[in-house]
């Protein structure tokens, strides 16, 4: 910001007060820094782009040279991949359903009736980010009853907690952009029940927030490694790490696809948020 102003000043010399003689000494460092900035940004870009290229090259290069897309078709038949994908999908669906059922009514209710409880929710939903996943998994694995300890669905129960911070923040922002009180009063005075109000009035208005919350949950479940690994369940990330494929390039390829998918998902969410804030501004 600061130097943006500075640049404008230099472009218009009449604005510079002659007695200070500021023109010459200001101009030089500005130009020198331009070079510095270019160099910094190029080195940074290289650090982030080169490993990405290396990963793609390693997984898609033919031994004889040149690239080939055949490894893509080998993923599905790689041993253990299908069951890992199925497990991760199940966990993602269960986590999403539970976290939404738990958070959507609670956050809406707190917004409407218990505004003072928001502080408590904020603190509670920041905890899963602060507590290291590896430490948390110690507590979970030792305190879960044995029957649950033996079930893969323990992971979904735990992922609900890990997803809460993201879901809460999305919903809280989404509700903040709405005039919830008026919407609810209108709906209630027309004789609709609470559940009906949530389902027919609030949820459609929160579509963008709910979308980004579920997509974030999906990304979280498909990326979580720590707890799945120490609990010995082969979800997708654990499979990438442990799978004894005859071709290690397949694992790297799946890892690269997972990274690309994460990028796409996050960009999607950013654009969802942008369109949401634009809508709220228009209605304001």
């Amino acid at each position: 910001m600061a130097s943006l102003e500075l640049g404008a000043e230099i472009a218009d010399p009449s604005q510079i007060d002659a007695p200070y003689g500021a023109e010459a000494p200001l101009n030089k460092p500005q130009r020198r820094f331009r070079w510095g900035r270019g160099a910094i940004l190029i080195v940074t870009a290289a650090y982030f782009v080169v490993p990405f290229y290396a990963g793609m090259e390693y997984s898609l290069q033919r031994p004889t040279g040149g690239f080939s897309l055949t490894p893509l078709s080998q993923i599905a038949s790689a041993p253990g991949f299908a069951s890992a994908l199925w497990l991760s999908t199940q966990l993602a669906v269960i986590t999403m359903v539970v976290v939404m059922a738990l958070m959507v009514p609670t956050v809406i209710y707190v917004h409407l009736r218990l505004p003072r409880f928001r502080r408590v929710m904020e603190v509670i939903t920041i905890l899963p980010i602060i507590i290291p996943p590896i430490a948390y998994s110690v507590g979970v694995l030792e305190s879960a009853p044995q029957w649950l300890r033996n079930s893969q669905y323990l992971l979904a129960i735990v992922y609900v907690i890990l997803a809460m911070p993201y879901v809460y923040r999305s919903l809280d922002a989404g509700l903040g952009a709405l005039d919830v009180k008026t919407l609810v009063e209108a709906s209630r005075s027309l004789g609709s029940s609470w559940l009906m109000t949530i389902w027919r009035v609030l949820v459609p208005n929160l579509r963008a927030a709910l979308m980004s919350a579920s997509v974030l949950t999906l990304a979280l479940v498909f990326g979580e490694f720590t707890i799945a690994n120490v609990d010995n369940w082969q979800t997708i990330p654990v499979w990438i790490y442990l799978a004894p494929t005859d071709n290690p390039r397949i694992n790297t390829l799946v890892a690269m696809i997972a990274l690309l998918a994460t990028a796409v998902v996050l960009i999607l969410i950013v654009s969802l948020d942008r369109s949401q804030s634009r809508n709220s501004r228009r209605s304001a």
């Binding site: 080169v50 490993p51 990405f52 290396a54 990963g55 090259e57 390693y58 997984s59 990326g223 490694f225 990330p237 654990v238 990438i240 790490y241 694992n251 790297t252 890892a255 690269m256 997972a258 990274l259 994460t262």
Partner: peptide, 12 residues
Amino acid sequence: GVNLAFMFIATL
């Protein structure tokens, strides 16, 4: 996580 580790193994 795992994906990043695999990417860097391919790099370095």
